[in-house]
């Protein structure tokens, strides 16, 4: 049996890579993709914990998977809005590079 920490390691790794991508991808959609990674990492962690008996109470036995479901839902909503935003920006500024989106520059 795989210790929980291994699974968590995978989750953490995924999170880290996703964070890295979110911070450093030039393409806006690339950033969105990286964010999907992060969300997946979180969901994975949830499911992992759930599979290993946390939470233990009967009522919350499916909390982990439920959470993962919700995460997927949220991810979808996020992707929708994000994409819409990218398209809107693209239409205006003719760019999809995050670096060039600095209209809100103070």
């Amino acid at each position: 049996m795989i210790p929980l920490s291994h699974l968590l390691t995978v989750s953490i790794g995924l999170f880290a890579i996703g964070l890295f991508g979110a911070l450093s991808r030039r393409n806006a959609i690339g950033i969105l993709m990286a964010i999907e990674l992060i969300l997946n990492a979180a969901a994975l962690a949830f499911v992992a914990f759930n599979a290993y008996g946390i939470p233990a109470a009967d009522r919350d036995a499916a909390l982990g998977q439920t959470a993962a479901l919700f995460i997927i839902g949220i991810a979808a909503a996020g992707a929708i809005v994000g994409l819409a935003l990218v398209l809107a920006v693209y239409r205006h500024q003719r760019t999809i590079f995050a670096d060039d989106m600095h209209l809100l520059k103070g």
Partner: peptide, 10 residues
Amino acid sequence: VTLAGALGVT
């Protein structure tokens, strides 16, 4: 695979 894929994405 997962991690490799992640790297690939970024």
